[in-house]
């Protein structure tokens, strides 16, 4: 007998916030995964909404590709507001 599949649990802590990864549970089906997520991760009023996703369905980037994926953004400093100097007496900008 194999373990029940693993599911990743995401919780919205309160209205207006996005769901955030909380942990995982094992469950045989989606309904059970939600129930287990509720019973495991929201016992202390941690959330108002839950997502569960089969862990096997998550596609993640390879850390070995971190260079090509993320480093090219490093020199695009003109995307950030602090790149531009505006004299102090100019307001509301």
């Amino acid at each position: 007998m194999q373990d029940w599949p693993l599911w990743e649990v995401f919780i919205r802590a309160k209205g207006g916030l996005s769901h955030r990864h909380a942990g995982s549970v094992h469950a045989a089906d989606a309904k059970m995964a939600l129930e287990h997520a509720r019973d495991t991760y929201t016992r202390r009023m941690e959330g108002v909404s839950l997502w569960v996703i089969p862990s096997a369905q998550i596609i993640s980037s390879d850390p070995a590709d971190a260079g090509p994926l993320f480093e090219p953004a490093e020199d695009k400093i003109y995307r950030h507001p602090t790149f531009y100097s505006i004299p102090d007496h100019i307001k509301h900008i």
């Binding site: 007998m1 194999q2 373990d3 942990g23 995982s24 495991t40 016992r43």
Partner: peptide
Amino acid sequence: GHGLYLYSAAETLGASRE
């Protein structure tokens, strides 16, 4: 619950709970 969190952490290293 703590056992469960920890088994999950170990599972990320390729060990199955079973």
